[in-house]
Amino acid sequence: MAVQEDRLKDLLVRALDGDGSAYHAFLDALSGLLRAFLGRRLTRLPDDVEDLVQETLLAVHNQRHTYDAALPVTAWVHAIARYKLIDFLRRRAGHEALNDPIEDDDEFLAASDDEPRDARRDLATLLQQLPDRHRLPIVYVKIEGRSVAETAKAIGMSESAVKVGIHRGLKALAALIRK
Protein backbone atom coordinates (compact mmCIF):
# COMPACT_ATOMS: atom_id res chain seq x y z
CA MET A 1 0.00 0.00 0.00
CA ALA A 2 2.90 2.34 0.68
CA VAL A 3 4.08 1.54 -2.85
CA GLN A 4 0.68 2.45 -4.21
CA GLU A 5 0.68 5.73 -2.26
CA ASP A 6 4.15 6.60 -3.56
CA ARG A 7 3.17 5.82 -7.11
CA LEU A 8 -0.03 7.89 -6.94
CA LYS A 9 1.81 10.75 -5.31
CA ASP A 10 4.58 10.73 -7.88
CA LEU A 11 2.00 10.80 -10.68
CA LEU A 12 -0.08 13.55 -9.12
CA VAL A 13 2.89 15.78 -8.30
CA ARG A 14 4.14 15.46 -11.86
CA ALA A 15 0.63 16.06 -13.15
CA LEU A 16 0.24 19.26 -11.16
CA ASP A 17 3.52 20.41 -12.71
CA GLY A 18 1.87 20.12 -16.11
CA ASP A 19 2.68 16.54 -17.17
CA GLY A 20 -0.47 15.47 -19.01
CA SER A 21 0.47 11.81 -19.43
CA ALA A 22 1.26 11.46 -15.71
CA TYR A 23 -2.14 13.00 -15.04
CA HIS A 24 -3.79 10.53 -17.36
CA ALA A 25 -2.06 7.63 -15.58
CA PHE A 26 -3.05 9.09 -12.21
CA LEU A 27 -6.73 9.37 -13.14
CA ASP A 28 -6.64 5.89 -14.66
CA ALA A 29 -5.26 4.32 -11.48
CA LEU A 30 -7.61 6.40 -9.39
CA SER A 31 -10.69 5.36 -11.34
CA GLY A 32 -9.90 1.69 -10.61
CA LEU A 33 -9.52 2.39 -6.90
CA LEU A 34 -12.69 4.47 -6.85
CA ARG A 35 -14.70 1.83 -8.67
CA ALA A 36 -13.71 -0.82 -6.13
CA PHE A 37 -14.12 1.50 -3.13
CA LEU A 38 -17.54 2.80 -4.19
CA GLY A 39 -18.64 -0.63 -5.43
CA ARG A 40 -18.08 -2.08 -1.97
CA ARG A 41 -20.12 0.74 -0.44
CA LEU A 42 -22.97 0.60 -2.91
CA THR A 43 -23.56 -3.14 -3.16
CA ARG A 44 -27.27 -2.49 -3.31
CA LEU A 45 -26.96 0.23 -5.92
CA PRO A 46 -24.53 -1.23 -8.47
CA ASP A 47 -25.98 0.86 -11.29
CA ASP A 48 -24.94 4.07 -9.57
CA VAL A 49 -21.30 3.15 -9.06
CA GLU A 50 -20.01 4.30 -12.43
CA ASP A 51 -21.87 7.61 -12.19
CA LEU A 52 -20.29 8.22 -8.84
CA VAL A 53 -16.84 7.23 -10.12
CA GLN A 54 -17.22 9.88 -12.82
CA GLU A 55 -18.54 12.46 -10.41
CA THR A 56 -15.62 11.86 -8.06
CA LEU A 57 -13.06 12.02 -10.87
CA LEU A 58 -14.54 15.35 -11.92
CA ALA A 59 -14.40 16.56 -8.31
CA VAL A 60 -10.78 15.47 -7.96
CA HIS A 61 -10.00 17.37 -11.14
CA ASN A 62 -11.91 20.50 -10.12
CA GLN A 63 -10.38 20.49 -6.64
CA ARG A 64 -6.82 19.57 -7.62
CA HIS A 65 -5.60 22.95 -6.33
CA THR A 66 -6.57 21.80 -2.81
CA TYR A 67 -3.96 19.04 -2.83
CA ASP A 68 -0.89 19.85 -0.74
CA ALA A 69 2.16 17.80 -1.74
CA ALA A 70 3.18 17.56 1.93
CA LEU A 71 0.15 15.32 2.54
CA PRO A 72 -0.68 11.75 1.51
CA VAL A 73 -2.61 11.52 -1.76
CA THR A 74 -4.55 8.60 -0.38
CA ALA A 75 -6.05 10.62 2.47
CA TRP A 76 -6.91 13.42 0.05
CA VAL A 77 -8.70 11.28 -2.55
CA HIS A 78 -10.33 9.16 0.13
CA ALA A 79 -11.80 12.28 1.76
CA ILE A 80 -13.12 13.47 -1.60
CA ALA A 81 -14.61 10.06 -2.45
CA ARG A 82 -16.18 9.81 0.97
CA TYR A 83 -17.66 13.31 0.69
CA LYS A 84 -19.10 12.54 -2.75
CA LEU A 85 -20.49 9.23 -1.54
CA ILE A 86 -22.21 10.79 1.46
CA ASP A 87 -23.49 13.62 -0.71
CA PHE A 88 -24.88 11.06 -3.16
CA LEU A 89 -26.59 9.07 -0.41
CA ARG A 90 -28.11 12.23 1.06
CA ARG A 91 -29.30 13.26 -2.35
CA ARG A 92 -31.24 10.08 -2.80
CA ALA A 93 -32.70 10.83 0.65
CA GLY A 94 -30.83 7.69 1.56
CA HIS A 95 -32.85 5.53 3.84
CA GLU A 96 -30.55 2.64 3.16
CA ALA A 97 -27.72 4.99 4.17
CA LEU A 98 -24.58 4.32 6.07
CA ASN A 99 -24.65 1.29 8.23
CA ASP A 100 -21.08 0.79 7.27
CA PRO A 101 -18.82 3.60 8.46
CA ILE A 102 -16.36 4.86 5.87
CA GLU A 103 -13.50 5.72 8.12
CA ASP A 104 -10.38 3.86 7.21
CA ASP A 105 -8.36 5.44 4.41
CA ASP A 106 -5.93 2.50 4.28
CA GLU A 107 -8.78 0.47 2.99
CA PHE A 108 -9.02 2.83 0.06
CA LEU A 109 -6.03 1.07 -1.47
CA ALA A 110 -7.29 -2.40 -0.69
CA ALA A 111 -8.54 -3.19 -4.15
CA SER A 112 -8.82 -1.83 -7.64
CA ASP A 113 -11.42 -2.55 -10.30
CA ASP A 114 -10.37 -1.48 -13.76
CA GLU A 115 -13.41 -2.57 -15.69
CA PRO A 116 -15.66 0.43 -16.26
CA ARG A 117 -19.34 -0.31 -16.40
CA ASP A 118 -21.94 1.77 -18.13
CA ALA A 119 -22.69 5.10 -16.57
CA ARG A 120 -26.37 5.80 -16.27
CA ARG A 121 -26.04 9.50 -16.64
CA ASP A 122 -24.36 10.62 -19.81
CA LEU A 123 -21.93 13.49 -19.18
CA ALA A 124 -22.00 14.32 -22.89
CA THR A 125 -25.71 15.09 -22.57
CA LEU A 126 -25.13 17.22 -19.49
CA LEU A 127 -22.40 19.05 -21.36
CA GLN A 128 -25.00 20.13 -23.94
CA GLN A 129 -26.76 22.09 -21.20
CA LEU A 130 -23.79 24.37 -20.57
CA PRO A 131 -23.73 27.82 -22.15
CA ASP A 132 -21.51 28.21 -25.26
CA ARG A 133 -18.77 30.10 -23.44
CA HIS A 134 -18.22 27.02 -21.27
CA ARG A 135 -19.25 24.25 -23.62
CA LEU A 136 -17.27 25.25 -26.73
CA PRO A 137 -13.87 25.53 -24.99
CA ILE A 138 -14.42 22.10 -23.38
CA VAL A 139 -15.53 20.47 -26.63
CA TYR A 140 -12.76 22.01 -28.73
CA VAL A 141 -9.82 21.71 -26.34
CA LYS A 142 -10.73 18.82 -24.12
CA ILE A 143 -12.73 16.54 -26.41
CA GLU A 144 -11.44 17.35 -29.89
CA GLY A 145 -7.91 17.95 -28.62
CA ARG A 146 -7.32 21.26 -30.38
CA SER A 147 -4.87 23.75 -28.91
CA VAL A 148 -6.03 26.65 -26.79
CA ALA A 149 -4.76 29.15 -29.38
CA GLU A 150 -6.61 27.41 -32.19
CA THR A 151 -9.79 27.25 -30.14
CA ALA A 152 -9.54 30.90 -29.20
CA LYS A 153 -9.37 31.83 -32.87
CA ALA A 154 -12.17 29.47 -33.91
CA ILE A 155 -14.71 30.72 -31.39
CA GLY A 156 -13.54 34.30 -31.15
CA MET A 157 -12.50 34.34 -27.50
CA SER A 158 -9.16 35.27 -25.98
CA GLU A 159 -6.86 32.42 -24.93
CA SER A 160 -7.30 33.22 -21.26
CA ALA A 161 -11.08 33.31 -21.73
CA VAL A 162 -10.85 29.80 -23.25
CA LYS A 163 -8.89 28.55 -20.24
CA VAL A 164 -11.31 30.20 -17.82
CA GLY A 165 -14.20 28.77 -19.84
CA ILE A 166 -12.83 25.24 -19.45
CA HIS A 167 -12.21 25.73 -15.74
CA ARG A 168 -15.64 27.21 -15.01
CA GLY A 169 -17.33 24.79 -17.40
CA LEU A 170 -16.01 21.74 -15.58
CA LYS A 171 -17.16 23.26 -12.29
CA ALA A 172 -20.56 23.98 -13.80
CA LEU A 173 -20.70 20.38 -15.04
CA ALA A 174 -20.03 19.14 -11.51
CA ALA A 175 -22.81 21.44 -10.26
CA LEU A 176 -25.23 20.03 -12.86
CA ILE A 177 -24.48 16.51 -11.60
CA ARG A 178 -25.36 17.55 -8.04
CA LYS A 179 -28.84 18.68 -9.08
Partner: peptide
Protein backbone atom coordinates in the same frame (compact mmCIF):
# COMPACT_ATOMS: atom_id res chain seq x y z
CA UNK B 1 -19.51 9.57 -22.17
CA UNK B 2 -17.77 6.57 -20.62
CA UNK B 3 -15.22 6.87 -17.85
CA UNK B 4 -12.20 6.31 -20.11
CA UNK B 5 -13.36 9.13 -22.34
CA UNK B 6 -13.89 11.35 -19.30
CA UNK B 7 -10.32 10.68 -18.19
CA UNK B 8 -9.06 11.56 -21.68
CA UNK B 9 -11.01 14.79 -21.45
CA UNK B 10 -9.78 15.72 -17.98
CA UNK B 11 -6.15 14.84 -18.72
CA UNK B 12 -5.89 16.87 -21.93
CA UNK B 13 -4.33 20.32 -21.82
CA UNK B 14 -4.15 22.58 -19.85
CA UNK B 15 -3.26 20.73 -16.67
Amino acid sequence: MDTRKLIDVLASEPV
